[in-house]
Amino acid sequence: MPIDADRAVAAEPRSTEIRWDSKDVQLYHLGLGAGVPATDPDELRYTLESRLHVLPSFATVAGAGRGAVGGLNGPGLDIDLASVLHGGQSVRVHRPIPVAGSAVSTSRIAAVHDKGKAAVLVLRTEVADDEGPLWTSDSQIFVRGEGGFGGERGPSARTELPSRDADKTVEKAVREDQALLYRLCGDLNPLHADPEFAARAGFDRPILHGLCSYGMTLKAVVDTLLGGDVGRVRSYTTRFAGVVFPGESLRIRMWADSPEPGRVQVSVTAVERDDAPVLADTIVEHV
């Protein structure tokens, strides 16, 4: 059987050293659409090295994502990457991410869930530098056709949005070239750049990286509800519910203090496709 859940979870964690600097951070922010207007003081915090701060979702690309390399081909796993989908993502930051640094990234399979027609791997990555833990991230990876092995189904609860109108709603345009820029952060999957490859995958044109929508959404929440202070973010969780095509716009609805202080619920949809879902079960916890 391609997935041996017990063996995968029991496997030794894999560690690697990762490094990043201000240029990596600036490229990431630009890949999310930061810097418009270019002279806006609020945007310069994302683009100008002398004022730079780091959006916590940068954790998903730090070290060009090398901290998670090999996580899907470890013991107990024999997976066809063509059957893999990124189902969800969470990041918990233990302290602000420095503009430049080096750290040890340790990854392991934290859980394997049996969804019947698919298996869900939870790939957990913990990153620490000489001063201690920096962040912990969980990637939920759906592997189509690999369920039915008799394992636990795992959590399936959905987060209901408040019945009231959103406290804030913003629309963010996705540039035609945004995926081409974002992929330079490390995810060079041709699905996001090559029309012929996208067609073979069933799309009429390349799609935007889910983690790009993820970062764009966190930036919108920080800028709109958290006073532009990235240091207030404690954790950020989402489920990828649909695709985005470059050239479209994201409609980002936010409910503050929902259902309690320090918690923002978010809904993200594609404006041009009648609010087709993009991100769901999305929560930002903050101080």
Rank of each mutant, 00 (worst) to 15 (best):
H209Q: 13
G151T: 04
R232K: 14
R253Y: 04
R158P: 01
V222H: 00
I252E: 11
Y214F: 15
C212W: 04
E171I: 09
V266G: 00
L184T: 13
V266K: 01
R251L: 08
D229V: 03
P246I: 13
R153Q: 13
G151E: 00
C185N: 15
P190Q: 07
A193E: 11
S213C: 08
R234G: 10
G210A: 10
I207G: 08
M216Q: 11
K172I: 14
G247W: 09
T269P: 09
S249I: 07
P246H: 12
L250T: 05
F203H: 10
Y182C: 09
R263V: 12
R232H: 02
R200I: 09
L191R: 05
S156A: 15
P195Q: 08
L208P: 03
E260G: 02
T217Y: 03
M216S: 01
C212G: 03
D194L: 05
P261C: 01
P246S: 09
R239C: 07
L180G: 13
E152F: 09
L181K: 14
L225S: 10
A157F: 08
D165R: 08
A220N: 05
P206Q: 13
L225F: 01
F203R: 06
P190F: 07
P246A: 12
S249V: 08
P206G: 06
E171V: 12
P261N: 01
V221D: 02
A198L: 05
A193Y: 08
H192Y: 10
Q178H: 12
G151D: 01
V244Q: 07
L191S: 08
S258W: 06
R158H: 14
W255N: 05
A193F: 07
P162E: 02
D204Y: 13
E248N: 14
D257N: 08
T169N: 08
K172M: 14
E176Y: 15
K168E: 13
R175I: 12
N189I: 03
E176W: 15
I252Q: 04
G228F: 06
G227W: 01
G242W: 14
P190D: 12
T217R: 02
S156W: 09
S249G: 09
P259R: 04
Y214W: 14
A157Q: 14
W255Q: 06
G247S: 06
R158N: 11
G262E: 00
Y182A: 04
F197I: 09
V233F: 07
E160I: 09
T269Q: 14
D223L: 04
G262F: 00
I207A: 07
G154L: 06
K219N: 13
M254R: 10
R200A: 13
V244P: 03
